[in-house]
Nucleic acid binder design. Sequence first.
DNA 1: TTTGAAATCAGTAGCAT
DNA 2: ATGCTACTGATTTCAAA
Lengths: 154, 154
Amino acid sequence: MEKIDNLDRQILEIISQNARIPFKDVAAECGVSRAAIHQRVQRLIDLGVIVGSGYHVNPKSLGYRTCTYVGIKLEKGSMYKAVVAELQNIPEIVECHFTTGPYTMLTKVYACDNEHLMDLLNNRMQEIPGVVATETLISLEQSIKKEIPIRADK
Amino acid sequence: MEKIDNLDRQILEIISQNARIPFKDVAAECGVSRAAIHQRVQRLIDLGVIVGSGYHVNPKSLGYRTCTYVGIKLEKGSMYKAVVAELQNIPEIVECHFTTGPYTMLTKVYACDNEHLMDLLNNRMQEIPGVVATETLISLEQSIKKEIPIRADK
DNA sequence: TTTGAAATCAGTAGCAT
DNA sequence: ATGCTACTGATTTCAAA
């Protein structure tokens, strides 16, 4: 997109895996000065390539023992925006996509247990006007969880 | 799980959204000293509540214009581990879950364009022994992308 | 893009609650 | 057991080249 070179990619590769690494270490690994890293990172933020940072929290530690994907079918696709507005109010929904395929939309939902999940499905999601059906895909085991790959060439 | 109190939650709430915020600011917001934050964060790391950190990169900036979920049906559920091992080698696959519902497993895949996606599906994923069918749910728009909610009580 | 100085911040230890 | 103060060294920021 906007002239991202190999140094940028190398920096992204490192800091996307560890947000707290001192920039001088990044600099050493990349073979440039510390200031170069600062300037590049700032530029990547300004360009919108970097959209934030955060510590990763283990869901189980917070009592979220159930991770599920919920496919939602809508009466009409055009109701999508209104439904999303409602879904925004449910904190347990961490992702929502408008999708091709068997569902109108696909959401990712964390719940504490089956009872909590049941409550979210029956009393929250299925109550939203326009939602005609939901299908629940419970994740019994998450086997892969990576960051997006930083491509070597562009 | 292991005695996470409200101060812990307040800290997690802040640093899960911003890994680079100075701990002195976290301390100010929580109304405790910096050292307390250090101790708490270190403890949360030791307990496995915090599992890492990272900068968030905008997929589009790296040329990934297509985000998809791919449901995979296996000949036998018991082949799951072997299939996961193969999927590990495909960098574009960033998530993989063993699921209840219509598929044996659900994966999240980033691709540059439809041609790239086609290649991943036909030449990589469907070639894996045990995979009998795939169904592709292309995300036309991602409307919600949050961190996991930090529960107020627990 | 680099360097170096000034300002800010992190991490530690010992004390107090 | 947890938080606080104070200290030391590391890191970030910002100048000029």
